[in-house]
Structure formats: C-alpha cells, structure tokens
Design a protein around this nucleic acid. Sequence first.
DNA 1: AGTTTATTTTAAACCGATTGCATAATTACC
DNA 2: GGTAATTATGCAATCGGTTTAAAATAAACT
Lengths: 346, 346
Amino acid sequence: MEKEITIYDIARELNLSPATVSRALNDHPAINSNTKILITGKAQEMGYQSNRFASNLRRQRTNTIGVIVPRLDSYFMSTVLAGMEKVANQANYNLLISQSFESVRKEMANAKTMFNSRVDGLLVSLASDTENLEHFNTFFRKGLPIILFDRVMPQKNCTNVVIDNVKAGYEATAHLLEQGCRRVMHVTGDIRRNVYADRLRGYKLALLDQGLTQTDDLLRFTNLTRQDGIEVAADISRMALPPDGLFVANDLCAVSCISALKKHGFAVPGDMAVVGFNNDPYSLVIEPNLTTIDYPGQEMGEIATQSLINYLNGLLRIGTTNTIVLHHELIVRESTQKLVGAEEGN
Amino acid sequence: MEKEITIYDIARELNLSPATVSRALNDHPAINSNTKILITGKAQEMGYQSNRFASNLRRQRTNTIGVIVPRLDSYFMSTVLAGMEKVANQANYNLLISQSFESVRKEMANAKTMFNSRVDGLLVSLASDTENLEHFNTFFRKGLPIILFDRVMPQKNCTNVVIDNVKAGYEATAHLLEQGCRRVMHVTGDIRRNVYADRLRGYKLALLDQGLTQTDDLLRFTNLTRQDGIEVAADISRMALPPDGLFVANDLCAVSCISALKKHGFAVPGDMAVVGFNNDPYSLVIEPNLTTIDYPGQEMGEIATQSLINYLNGLLRIGTTNTIVLHHELIVRESTQKLVGAEEGN
DNA sequence: AGTTTATTTTAAACCGATTGCATAATTACC
DNA sequence: GGTAATTATGCAATCGGTTTAAAATAAACT
C-alpha cells in the first residue's frame, strides 16, 4: 500500500486549510481565483485523486446509477450499455446493472436492491409484464429520479427516452405497401409495452391511409423469439390466402421467420416481402438481407444517462412529463425489393 | 429524505456500543454468539442497511471491480457481462466497465482511470495489439489482483480463465477431416492473442495427426470482421485449387464468408464444409446452419468474478500462475454435413 | 482468596471530504 | 481615519462504520 494524496497533504504543502482546498477543487465561488489556480496546480502536480467514498459519505450521495433492463444479452442492449458506460464514466459515476429477465417480480426485487444500495437514480427499460410503476414508489417518495428508456410508461416525474415507434411502424408498413404488398401481416410482441403497441398503431395507420381495411387475421401476438418466427411461418404456410408482406417487430424473429418461410417454399421477397426492426447484425446475415428500422441504441444510452446526471447536478428539471424522442431510419435491403428493375426500390 | 438506520441506532436500542454492533454484524469471533443473535435480529427488525461508503472509507476498499474488454457490443461479451453482473451483485460489488476498442493505447488509458477510481481488482480481456502487461504495473505494485479471461497472457500473479482453445481448434479441424475434407483452410485473427494462436495450433495438430502436411497457402490472417469474411471468399473463388473445408476462428466472419461463398457459386457444405467458433446466434440464422464451438460466456464471467471476489476476501490465493479451464463443445449443424446418408454425421 | 488467563465489551481515534459559522483580510464609503 | 460592506479563509463538527488498545467481566487454577 502506498500513501494516497489527500486534501490535507495539499493544504499542508501550501499552508492553507483543507477547507479551502476542498472548496477550490469544487470551484466554490467564495475562493479567490488565484488561490484556485494555485491549488488545482498543486493537486495536479501531486497526483491528487479525490476519494469518492469520503465525499459520498459526507454528501450522502453515492454517485452510482442503477440500471434495470429486461436482458443484457441482446445486441441492442449492449450498444445501449456501451453508451451509458461512456457517459457515466466521464461524469465519474458508477453503474449498477441488473436484469429483470422480462419479469416484473424480478424487476421489483432489483428495484429494492438498488434502493438499498442507495443509488442516486435509476435508468429503466421495463419488463414485458410490468403493468404499473408502483414498485418504484420508494424512489418517488425519496425524490430519487427515474428515467425510462425504450420500453417506457408515461408517468409524472419520469423522463422517457424513446424513438417514435408509431412513425417507424408506419414507415415499415408503408414501405411494404409501396412495394406492392396488399396483404401485410404484422407480428408483434406484448402490447402492454409501448414499443409494440406503438408499432402496431403505426401499422394500422399505414393500412388506413392506403384505404386498406385492417383485419385481425393478419395480426400475430407472440414473444418475438426465434421459435415464434418458426411458428408464424408454419402458420402462414397453412393459410388458404397467405399474406404477401410481413412486418415483424424485431429482427431476431423476422430472421428466423424468413428462414422457416423459405423451407416452406416461399420466395422472399418474391412471394413475401419482410421488414424487421432494430437493425441487429442478424439482418445482414440472413439471405435475403433484411430491410429493417435502424434504432440508435448507443445514443439512447448516452442521452438517458446524461439527462439523469444533469438532473442530479441540478441542471435539469424532471417536472411535467418530459419525453425525448430520437431519430430512427428505415434501411431498405433485399428482403423487400419486389420492384427491382420495374421501379427504383427507394 | 428519511432517516437511515445506523449501527448507532441499534447500539442505543440494545444498550451496547457501536463497536460491538459493527463486529457482530461482521461475524467477528470476539463477540458472544448470543449477542450476535440479538444484534442481527434487531438489525433485521429495524431494517438496517450498512452504509457502504462509510465502510469503504474506513477499510480503504471500494467494493468496485474494474472490467476492461475489447468491445461490449458482441453477443459473447454481453453474456460474459451478464455473468459478471450476477455474481458481483450478489456479493455486493459494483462493476466499472470500459472498452478498449481493441487498442492497447485505450487499454492503458482505461487502466489508469480504473486505478484512479481505486478499484479493488481488475477483470481484463486483452486488446488485439497488447504485447505485454506493463501498463498494469501500478496494480501489481499495489498488490491489486488482476484476472484475465478469454484473451489472456501468462503472467505471475494473474489468474487466467479460459477454454482449451488448442483442443477446440483440434476438434473443429478433426471434424472437418472426418467429413472427408482434405484441403482445410483456416481463417484466424491476430495471433498475438492466445485464443487465435491456440486455435491455429490445434488446427495444425489435427492435420498432423491425419498425416496431412500443413501449408501456409491455406492460412489466412485477418481481423475476423464481416468484411474479412467476404474477402476470404473472393480470395478462395480465385484459387486454382480451392479448399474443401474451412475453419474460421469466429462465427461473425464464418457467416459472412458462407454468404459470399454461395454468391461465388460454392455449395455449402457440398463444395465447402465450414466450422465457426463461438456459437453466436448468427450461427442459427445462416443457411446452412453453422457448425461451431460452443463457448460458455456467462460461466466465464461468473467464474472470473467469483475468483476475484474470493481473492479479495482472502479465500483464494493467486500465487503461482493459476489457470481455470472451462468446457467447450463442438456443435455439429448443417454446414459440415457432407456425409448425410452415407455415414452418421457425428 | 488471590492470581492468572480467557472471553467480551467499550472508548476513542480514524478514514477523507464537506460545510455552517466564525474570523480575518481587503475594499468601499462617509 | 474610522466604520461598514465585501471577499477570502479557517475552525471544527459531521457523515457511519472499523479497529486498536484498553477495560471490564467471567472462568480457571493454585
């Protein structure tokens, strides 16, 4: 063990009090600017590093942000986390990360652990069966901020960071219609989650705008797993009048569905054009390459984290419901190129 | 803000000193067992939660583990992290996660940040161009433990957590040979990294054991990216005598190579059997499904973290070079099924 | 009973930064 | 020059566990 440099060392060296050193390092207005320069210079020179634990103890803040996500092991979530880590690290915050495994019960347990760990705030993407935010009441009562991202729920005192899923769903569907599809099926997830409910809404709106009537026999509610994709394909192969377009609410399911459809003898995009959602790396592996919605994971992580930190530093107020909407983009690839040669496919 | 329960509250309630309460809660041997029961009971009843920061401050430990990985955004790494998070969380440790982006310079910067953040120990998977561990000397000097996982480097005082890459490489190659391949190409990464050097070694050994001479024209050194897969395929298509088997050191590259090979008119597995490495979800998306080596990411994360925590608690010594080897498994799928019908394909 | 030894418990210092209040130094103003 | 108003710095308490050394209590042995 080597001796750590403390503010006392700096104070002694400069013949000042620790209080002055502390204030100078925190840029307190009551300190003379020359003194500040002197102190920060000396601190630099001596290789001083503030001891977070002393500071946290005194300040009653932990500089730790809790993160609760459904699962860590998806491509999308790992990019979100990468973004969060970047921002948190720069701001000298720690992340305490946990998974709900899509279960509200685990989400409740995690929230409790986070609370007991005295995190300063929470970044949450909701589990699929979460119906309300009551398990976060301990946080609300104590005035601890919560930012929801991606899978959100409107709630006073909660900033939401999302993309416009309605618009994205609309664009995906409209693109299929432009390619000449007339019977577009939509495969979605648990519509208690905004991401799926909104994409569904966008799908319906797009059909409406083309004067097509939306019928429930072209809707499939699933968990969007690989297995679900296979089952949807089997289902389609048994239909008397199968769809000619498919909008699946995530890439994993879209991709497995395409594979299965091909085994059932469907040509993609010939018999069936397919759009996914997320722009996961899968989408470039499947043949044909998948048309999908690109979705800024890293940026979402960065913005959610930065907003929380700004709030904690008093730079931002989470007053009335406050929503940050990020951009998305439709990426057109082979899986929807019905009109190649005939018309330019976007 | 509500009042937090402290050991002083418990002490007052039971007419004991805070010192006794502290010792009892830490199961100190000098405390009478009846007193312990009394105290832990009361603590439970009052909803006491230890304040980490006070504890860390006094103990000069941070209960934080630093994690440095090449990239967060791969499937494999996200499963590793999920495992780490699980174990660390249970043991009341925080993770401070950062990415080196495959660059030793960033790795050095991250190590410095970690050191300044006073992490208790480090979990590291090395960047591709790291040549030595000198940038961790500050840790070694201070007696801070480092555990390397997956991409490791033998070093005194460093536990390594790995799989047997030689054996895995051997099995992958032997499997291709069993399927009747006679010209097996190997596509590998930066062989400064054990994972690639060892897989290459296994490949060579397998050829040797079959009495085949290994020639360098069937070796390709790449970065194992998607693009590299495409280029290897182009390269192969230009060869006068192309290989009939391909062992690629990761799935991402294997998968893009298969796609490209098919475009060049090769039948997989007919003209070319392919084995990947990692059992990434990609491997089930590509057609034909990819034969690959399954690789226990989550377990690797759990074991590395648990070992570090055990060491920090004095339950484990990292004395002489200490290596933990996990199991792997060859998963046979369509991409190598040359002998279907003829012989049972494993 | 008197000592020695072992077992429990406590008092008090400590970890290092922060902050309310007091004091000192400087400037402003009559 | 003297007093008020600013501005800059210091004192000392505080956050809540942990730990050393010492004290108090209990048990063991002549």
